[in-house]
Design a protein around this nucleic acid. Structure first.
Length: 876
RNA sequence: GGGCUCUUAGCUCAGUUGGUUCAGAGCACCUGCCUUACAAGCAGGGGGUCGAAGGUUCGAAUCCUUCAGGGCCCACCA
């Protein structure tokens, strides 16, 4: 045999990937077939493949390949996301390495560097997906900053602005001092941090008394503009209308009253810093307080920080607490755990900050998206539990801050012609802007030079939310053939961490701009963790190198490894052992092929065992196919794989192949050979979505195939009738075979030594199976007997008793004990069944089917007890 | 603080509306085999009071209550 006994993935994978590409099997163009569409969750253009991507994209590829085999027009659109904040941070860092500060170069120069970076590294991650076997339509590869994508974003912005849903406002927003930009609420991650609660005393003006407040942020006292007490708090009643003096800066501030203050917390006195806390801002507005912003944009202190000017806020916190202590203002400190907002991307501690930003009003936009998921089921979430999370977020949604103080992204199409709050227009391009601006300003002589475009860019998700639409150019050309054909797409596969960022917003956009959902099903995968349940991360160094894994186990092995333990929505503990299991499975299939391939075919009569074996496996295959389809329908991909795995490994390899295997160096009959090859091919089709490379390789080894007969475009098996009696009969026969093997094992009788078998038959079983039993257990003859057999080892299947006469003495004592054990167990079982059946309430209340099952159990047990007792009698 | 969710074999998890062989699977483990497709393999085997306590029911891993311990999401309490 010249085919190696081990499957070598490395040599195979590139070859078939190129082959598929060459014959355009990944490519989709609209035709009369039913479309099946997936849009990829676009990874960060400068990112590298991590385990989360591997899992997501494997699942997507399984779904798309299965759809392709099912004859659908399968279209998987790949692409990348410009990820403005993450990419900009990387570019800034890279420039810094080269000694260039972002603040020293122009916007155009910076964008030049960013594009350079994008062109250099962008698409790298897509190349990695190819190694994994992903069958994306690469001709459609898109980028969120492609011209048409950008145009769509701008058009949508203008449209929403015209509808009055986008507005500009001076609000308190989340400020990332490191990236120097605002963030949406969703980009802020709250983390519990151990900190200190500082008790500070303020001198009350005109009284020889101090008032003590509690704060976690002593540095902000420099921005204090009031002290607030609860009007119902008797302890402080005498302070009403008085003023207090802020330590260090000695500013005199009013003592105000508001029921917002929790009398139980701290001292019941609150310092109010409207510029640096959302609640304080509300209080400030309500009570007409002054707002003093003490921070620069990088969260160092400005001139209001006095002698701390230019120093970072955390540095100042330490320093000022010392100064306060020295001057006697610090009463005490307490350990305190509080939630600190951090930037999802830069991890910097977020500062609430007042600034001019752009917002999208969400209240109305959200309504159809809520209905679609929770009432109409137009979009289904898998697992379903995420619908609750979705509902909660959607029903409590707040306006979306869509502007970012970055350069890398879609620049906001607002143009200013003056300094007034309303001196701007929103337009799709400069010409239009100029026209609008001339009208609005009433100045017909306004020139291009007099217009200044907003410096900010849009939140990355403001382009990503259009992804399923804009990929098919559905915004710019709403009636084009592609969008009509591919939209709504079918399945979206992504992680639950971006349910709000992306999934929910795509649904919103889908209804707003197409009046249809962007997809029908959302499959939310779990997070990939390591075997210690730790999240995979670069800093922990516990994230394996994806390409190295593929090298070690083959792409198919890695795919199987990932899928085996990834029930939807459950985190998956990634363990390389699972990849090894996948690799082993690939080798198993490979060798299954080698065996069948190595047989010499001859024009013989088909043995009875082979005929029956083939018939049985055909039924078993179809029965399993029904299961597999059901698993897929429920997005239980790992269960679908496991069912396939067991079918191929256990039923096909361990049973069927052994049943039909000809004696050593004997030829096989043509009928059986043809049939088994055909069944093997059916197996390969079921396996192909999971293990595309190996299966295509084997497929092409079986036969020389024309390109259009490649496995990737073969036809998925249709479900045929299942003969239940065959399946059950086989199970019985398998138990008999196991029984014989157990005895062989216990008594150390090698398989090579043929045995005789006698059967005391009370259970009606078709004798057809005898040929198979003989072959697999090496039985020379099966005798049907009327009485128990002496000097034999015995075992029972259901109520049949089987005897293997052996030469030499048998251990009678051991046989008796074995039978007594079985008898004891069966009697106990019978008692419990009879107890149930004699319970009137059971008989009256339980459904007929349940009762008849119990009666059957009773009869079986009685019959078995009878045989056991007879055997026992013959031995004693 | 509000909501959701989980706890089943050594590990990772199935267990659909309470009722067939429902106490399961894969891996791991133990034993014996280098048998001629595959030692990346074959055959056989052990292993769980279904987190705890109550309750409903003829019947509970499954439904209800309480408790213990995880996880996730949301929320402006200094």
């Amino acid at each position: 045999m010249d085919i190696p006994s081990k499957y070598e993935p490395q040599q195979v994978e590139n070859h078939w990937y190129d082959y598929w590409m060459k014959h355009n099997y990944f490519q989709s163009i609209p035709d009369e077939r039913e479309p099946y569409t997936i849009v990829i969750p676009p990874p960060n253009v400068t990112g590298v493949l991590h385990m989360g991507h591997m899992l997501n994209n494997t699942i997507q590829d399984v779904l798309i390949r299965r759809a392709r085999l099912k004859g659908k027009n399968a279209c998987w659109v790949p692409g990348t996301d410009h990820a403005s904040i993450a990419t900009e941070a990387k570019v800034v860092a890279k420039l810094k390495e080269q000694g260039i500060n972002k603040s020293d170069i122009t916007r155009e120069e910076f964008l030049g560097h960013a594009w350079e970076w994008t062109h250099e590294y962008g698409g790298f991650i897509l190349e990695q997906l190819k190694k994994l076997g992903c069958s994306c339509d690469w001709k459609r590869t898109a980028f969120t900053m492609d011209d048409n994508m950008s145009e769509a974003v701008i058009k949508v912005f203008v449209d929403l602005h015209n509808k009055g849903k986008i507005y500009r406002g001076y609000r308190m927003v989340n400020w990332d001092p490191e990236a120097k930009t605002t963030l949406s609420d969703e980009e802020v991650i709250y983390e519990e941090k151990q900190g200190l609660l500082y008790y500070l005393s303020y001198q009350v003006e005109g009284l020889n008394e101090k008032v003590t407040i509690a704060t976690t942020r002593p540095e902000t006292i420099l921005g204090d503009t009031a002290i607030c007490i609860n009007p119902n708090d008797d302890r402080y009643a005498h302070l009403k209308g008085k003023k207090a003096i802020v330590p260090i800066c000695n500013r005199v501030i009013p003592i105000i009253e508001d029921e917002y203050v929790d009398m139980e917390f701290g001292t019941g006195c609150l310092k109010v810093t409207p510029a640096h806390d959302i609640n304080d801002m509300e209080l400030g507005k309500k009570h007409g307080l002054e707002t003093i912003d003490i921070f620069n944009e990088d969260a160092t202190l400005n001139s209001f920080g006095l002698h701390y000017e230019g120093k970072d806020r955390f540095e100042v916190r330490n320093a000022i607490s010392k100064e306060l202590e020295e001057q006697g203002f610090l009463v005490k400190t307490e350990q305190y755990i509080n939630k600190v907002g951090t930037s999802e991307r830069t991890k910097a501690v977020i500062e609430p900050r007042l600034s001019d930003q752009w917002f999208l009003e969400m209240e109305d936009l959200v309504k159809p998206a809520i209905k679609a998921v929770l009432e109409d089921n137009e979009v289904k979430l898998f697992p379903k539990k995420f619908e609750n999370t979705y509902r909660h977020w959607m029903e409590n949604i707040r306006d979306w801050n869509i502007s970012r103080q970055l350069w890398w992204g879609h620049q906001i199409p607002a143009y200013y012609f003056g300094d007034g709050q309303e001196d701007f227009v929103v337009a799709e391009n400069m010409d239009e802007a100029l026209n609008k601006a001339r009208k609005k300003s009433g100045n017909p002589d306004l020139s291009m030079a007099g217009l200044k475009q907003d410096e900010d860019v849009l939140d990355t998700w403001f382009s990503a939310w259009l992804w399923p639409i804009s990929l098919f150019n559905g915004i710019l050309e709403p009636n084009n053939k592609e969008i009509e054909y591919y939209y709504p797409t079918n399945d979206l596969v992504t992680g639950p961490d971006i349910l709000f960022f992306w999934v929910a917003r795509m649904i919103i956009a889908g209804y707003e701009f197409r009046n249809k959902p962007p997809f029908k099903n959302v499959y939310l995968t779990g997070l990939v963790r390591d075997t210690h349940r730790r999240k995979m991360s670069k800093s922990l160094g516990n994230s394996p190198d994806a390409l190295q894994l593929i090298k070690n186990y083959g792409a198919d092995g890695v795919r199987v490894g990932l899928l085996l333990s990834s029930a939807a929505g459950n985190d998956l503990m990634f363990d390389e052992n699972l990849c090894q299991q996948g690799k082993n499975f690939a080798n198993k299939i490979w060798n299954g092929f080698r065996l069948v391939n190595g047989w010499e075919v001859s024009d013989l009569q088909q043995p009875e065992a082979s005929k029956l074996g083939i018939e049985w496996y055909t039924s078993k295959f179809n029965q399993t196919l029904i299961e597999i389809e059901d698993h897929f329908d429920k997005y239980r991909i790992s269960d679908a794989l496991m069912a396939t795995y067991k079918l191929v490994w256990d039923d096909y390899s361990s049973w069927l192949l052994e049943i039909i295997k000809p004696a050593y160096q004997q030829p096989i009959d043509k009928t059986t050979h043809d049939a088994v090859l055909q069944l093997f091919e059916q197996n390969l089709k079921l396996l192909h979505p999971f293990m595309p490379f190996l299966t295509e390789e084997v497929w092409q080894h079986i036969d020389d195939r024309a390109p259009e007969q490649a496995l990737i475009v073969a036809q998925w098996p249709t479900i045929l009738a299942v003969d239940e009696s065959l399946v059950q009969g086989f199970e019985f026969a398998a138990e008999v075979i196991s029984g014989i093997r157990t005895i062989r094992k216990e008594k150390n009788i090698p398989l090579k030594e043929a045995l005789n078998l006698s059967v005391l038959n009370t259970e009606k079983v078709s004798e057809n199976w005898d040929t198979i039993i003989c072959k697999l257990a090496n039985i020379s003859v099966i005798n049907y007997v009327e009485a128990t057999v002496d000097s034999a080892l015995s075992f029972r299947v259901k109520s049949n008793e089987y005897f293997i006469p052996i030469s030499g003495t048998i251990d009678v004592e051991a046989e008796i004990n074995k039978i007594r054990e079985e008898l004891k167990y069966t009697k106990g079982f019978l008692v419990s069944v009879q107890r149930k059946l004699s319970n009137e309430r059971f008989v009256n209340n339980a459904p007929e089917q349940v009762i008849s099952v119990e009666r059957k159990k009773e009869a079986d047990a009685l019959a078995k007890i009878e045989t056991l007792e007879k055997s026992l009698a013959s031995l004693v």
